[in-house]
Write a protein that binds this DNA or RNA. Structure first.
Length: 587
RNA sequence: GGCCCCGUAGCUCAAUGGAUAGAGCAACAGCCUUCUAAGCUGCGGGUUGCAGGUUCGAUUCCUGCCGGGGCCGCCA
């Protein structure tokens, strides 16, 4: 599906070219002034600079050429040289008819089969997911859906944190507690029990205790460091214990992400690239990139042009253990080898920007990244009402599970409060509340600009009025309801025709989907799609309040309007789907 | 101290260098014997932190300052 703006840009581009001007000047966008026109082209203004000519004179020449084209019903010059354009209703009808005849799900093909690896999720083994994981999960998932819609081959990888100091902390804590002495017996080499000595619940208690112990006692921290290094060096008991942590955690994490409708293609982690680390370090040493500094092995990544001080990337600590920069580097090697991607996208907290800069520089210096662009798509934090990162009332970190439960409960309270879904079976109402609660949370998160922080506001997010997830879900549900009723009356949706201003605005917005998809991809910005979905729902609401559909006497007109309902529903469902938001059957 | 991000309506947030800076919430005034009023229509609301610069044109790009957040070698 190509957008109207793309079609018009091509037409205007040809006109500029015919005047001996750059074709790119023909870029046509949706008008900033809907009161004046549907579309605009600002190329004459830029052309004036290039050709050192009067912009209005250039605009006049372009306009004369554009008027030859039947797709345009209006071509006007305004202000210093804006070219304002309207598209003929017949042209709109033709394009809408094409969409109705084709069941293909609208998307674009900016990807053209290129491969992108998207690294998101950011969870750690043995640690419950908390609110800090929400944004990476929700934004990352939306981006993987978006890139797929745009014709990319997407490989999503959860890249679990499973190889750092926290593993050593857990191991040494378990050693202290004497829970499973067999794993600590240096003389015993296996086999080890198949059953994990700890459950996920155990780990959730043990990890904070281990972390606190290390904070309070330097000796314990030293122990944890030693255990980490030994784990990485391959001590069998520790490896076996580690495998139990991983397996137990994965079950819990899959359930948790599953409840959010989020899935990963790969469940790799830092540890999975462990076999690549040794050879990588050898190679870096040989090439002279890896050098010793203050007892550690590092790669210098500072550039003479740097304004700031860029610290070296540490590959191996003085105690022999590796850091996440090391595994990140090895992971690039793994991904290039197994996927040969064109792009690797890291959906990780903005605060780690410096870290990725180091890793990317090191990777490029060592030519590890193949043909892949390396890009950090950072995001801001979800804050509490005080503007500081979100905490529970007690001041602790809120678990993601609890946050979702809170959203769902609030959504159900709102449903009951509004007297909705009250006659539905309790089970269905709970399912609606789940979809609405999660939809509210995702939409609130995604509608903010990715890089900025935002304030969590339970009441505002779950509101059914305004720019919220529930409003959009409701808009879709309402259309579904009309179509169901129509079906009950034996009515078939027909091909829409643009007859009224409301229908025209709605049709124009439907045809603008590719622009939204492309802009969202280019900026890695789901909020663009949130805007699109909201504006689409608003345009539909205006159409809906202006034209009664089922009571329309003219059968042909009724079918045409039902067709517009169906098309709007398809597009709304599609966009919400890319945002990872489900629509209930009814509400 | 150095560097990065942010500062837009009362509140929460948008806006590839373009016209009169937009939404939502809140306030006010209308619209339901008809498809779910969780909606629609109308109405206000701004020195885009401050001061310069580049440009025909700046919320956007550059410089400085003020304010908030973050990062700055052996955690992730």
């Amino acid at each position: 599906m190509t957008s109207l703006t793309a079609e018009l840009s091509a037409i205007a581009g040809a006109a500029f070219a015919a005047e001996g001007l750059p074709e790119e000047l023909g870029l046509v966008t949706v008008a900033d002034r809907p009161d004046l026109a549907q579309f605009q082209c600002n190329g004459a203004l830029s052309a004036a600079k290039i050709a050192k000519a009067n912009p209005r004179a250039i605009a006049a020449k372009i306009a004369a050429r554009l008027r030859q084209n039947a797709i345009l019903s209006k071509v006007e010059i305004a202000g210093p040289g804006f070219i304002n354009l309207n598209v003929a209703d017949a042209a709109l009808d033709a394009r809408i008819a094409f969409l109705c005849d084709n069941e293909t799900i609208p998307g674009t093909n900016t990807g053209q089969g290129r491969t992108v690896v998207i690294d998101f999720g950011g969870a750690n083994v043995a640690k419950p997911m908390h609110v800090g994981h929400l944004r990476s999960s929700v934004i990352g998932d939306s981006l993987q859906r978006l890139f797929r819609a745009n014709g990319w081959h997407v490989v999503s990888d959860v890249h679990l944190g499973d190889w750092g100091l926290q593993m050593g902390q857990l191991i040494s804590e378990i050693g202290h507690r004497g829970i499973a002495p067999i794993y600590f017996d240096a003389n015993y080499t296996g086999p080890y029990p198949k059953e994990s000595p700890v459950t996920m619940d155990d780990l959730e208690e043990i990890y904070p205790a281990a972390s606190a112990a290390c904070k309070a006692d330097p000796a314990r921290l030293e122990e944890a460091r030693k255990a980490t290094a030994e784990l990485q060096a391959g001590r069998p008991g520790y490896r076996a214990l580690w495998q139990h942590f991983f397996d137990v955690s994965r079950v819990g994490l899959e359930r948790e992400w599953g409840s959010l409708g989020i899935h990963f293609d790969l469940w790799k982690g830092e540890a999975s690239v462990e076999p690549l680390i040794g050879p990588m370090i050898e190679k870096l040493k040989k090439s002279g990139l890896a050098v010793e500094s203050e007892g550690a092995l590092v790669v210098q990544v500072a550039e003479p042009t740097d304004k700031k001080e860029v610290p070296p990337l540490i590959l191996v600590k003085s105690d022999g253990a590796v850091l996440y920069g090391t595994t990140d580097l090895a992971t690039i090697i793994d991904r290039v080898k197994s996927q040969n991607p064109d792009l690797i996208l890291y959906v990780v907290d903005q605060r780690q920007h410096g870290h990725f800069e180091q890793v990317f520089r090191a990777a490029k210096k060592a030519h590890l990244n193949g043909k892949a662009e390396l890009e950090h798509a950072g995001f801001g934090t979800m804050n509490g009402p005080d503007g500081k990162p979100f905490k529970t009332r007690a001041g602790g970190v809120m678990k993601l599970y609890d946050l979702i439960a809170m959203m769902t409960a609030e959504a159900e309270a709102r449903l009951i409060e509004a007297g909705l879904a009250s006659e539905y079976p309790a089970e269905e109402r709970a399912e609606i509340a789940r979809k609405v609660g999660i939809g509210a949370l995702k939409f609130a998160d995604l509608s903010n600009h990715r890089q900025s922080d935002y304030i969590f506001d339970l009441k505002r997010f779950t509101r059914f009025e305004g720019k919220t997830g529930p409003y959009l879900q409701y808009a879709a549900v309402r259309i579904q309801s009309i179509l169901r009723k129509a079906q009950g009356e034996g009515l078939e949706p027909g091909c829409p025709a643009v007859l009224s201003p409301e229908e025209r605005t709605l049709a124009l917005h439907i045809l603008a989907l590719p622009d939204a998809l492309e802009a969202a991809e280019a900026r890695r910005a789901p909020n663009v799609l949130c805007d699109y979905a909201f504006t689409l729902a608003q345009a539909f609401s205006r159409f809906y309040s202006e034209h009664h559909i089922l009571s329309e006497a003219n059968a042909q007109l009724k079918a045409a309007r039902l067709g517009l309902c169906l098309l709007t529903l398809r597009f709304l469902t599609r966009v919400l789907g890319i945002l990872g938001i489900e629509i209930p059957e009814r509400m």
